Amino acid sequence: MSESFIYEEVVDFIARSNPQNVLEFKPSESVNQKVSILLEKEREENITAEEKKELDYFLMLEHIMRLAKAKARQLLNAA
């Protein structure tokens, strides 16, 4: 089973749960601040292995949410 197939299944589940809520979802300000700090550390090549893992995890979740939002838009436009 490929990674993209797993992503598609999760994305479809999220998008179908409540498409409007999915479109309106935004990370909190504290999450945005934390990610900004981690991105800056990465740019400066001053990021620890644990921080890099945290950043990579967030970026993966952000990717999933972008895909879910695109799917939610499709669902709402088809309705």
Rank of each mutant, 00 (worst) to 15 (best):
Y7P: 02
L39H: 06
F25R: 03
D12P: 01
R16V: 11
V31Q: 10
V35L: 04
E44P: 03
E29G: 12
E51V: 05
F58Q: 08
F13C: 08
E50K: 10
P19A: 01
I37R: 15
K41V: 01
E54L: 12
Y7R: 13
L38C: 04
Y57W: 08
K41S: 01
E44I: 03
V31E: 12
M60V: 06
L55F: 05
V22Q: 02
F25K: 05
N32R: 14
L38H: 01
E51S: 04
K53P: 00
F5V: 13
E44H: 07
A49S: 14
L59W: 02
E50N: 09
L39S: 02
F13W: 14
F13V: 11
N32Q: 14
F58L: 10
L59V: 07
V22P: 00
K52M: 13
S36H: 09
I6T: 09
L23S: 08
E50T: 07
Y57K: 15
R16C: 09
I14W: 04
M60C: 07
I14E: 02
S30Q: 15
Q20W: 07
N32I: 09
K52H: 12
K52Q: 14
A15L: 00
E44M: 12
D12F: 11
V35M: 03
S28P: 10
E24M: 06
L23Q: 05
K41G: 01
L38M: 09
E51C: 04
F5M: 11
K34G: 03
V35D: 02
N46L: 07
K41C: 00
E8L: 09
E50I: 08
R43Y: 08
E9L: 11
E40K: 15
E54S: 11
S36D: 13
K34I: 08
V31P: 01
D12C: 05
V31L: 15
K26D: 10
K26Y: 02
T48H: 06
V35K: 03
I6W: 08
E40C: 02
E9C: 06
R16A: 13
E29C: 04
E8S: 13
E9W: 07
F5R: 15
K41L: 10
V22G: 02
I14Y: 00
I47P: 00
V35Q: 05
S17H: 13
K34A: 13
L55E: 08
E51W: 05
D56S: 09
F25I: 04
D12W: 03
E50W: 03
L23V: 05
F25P: 00
A49D: 11
N18G: 07
E24G: 04
K52Y: 13
I6R: 11
L39Y: 10
I6V: 15
R16Y: 03
Q33V: 12
L55K: 05
A15R: 04
N46I: 01
E8V: 03
D56Q: 11
A15G: 01
S17G: 02
R16G: 04
Y7F: 15
K41Q: 06
E9I: 14
D12M: 02
F13Q: 09
E42R: 14
N18D: 15
V22T: 08
S30F: 11
L38G: 00
L39K: 14
V10T: 13
M60P: 02
F58T: 07
F25W: 08
R43T: 11
V11L: 07
T48S: 15
T48M: 07
I47D: 01
P19S: 02
I14D: 00
E40R: 11
P19E: 00
E54D: 13
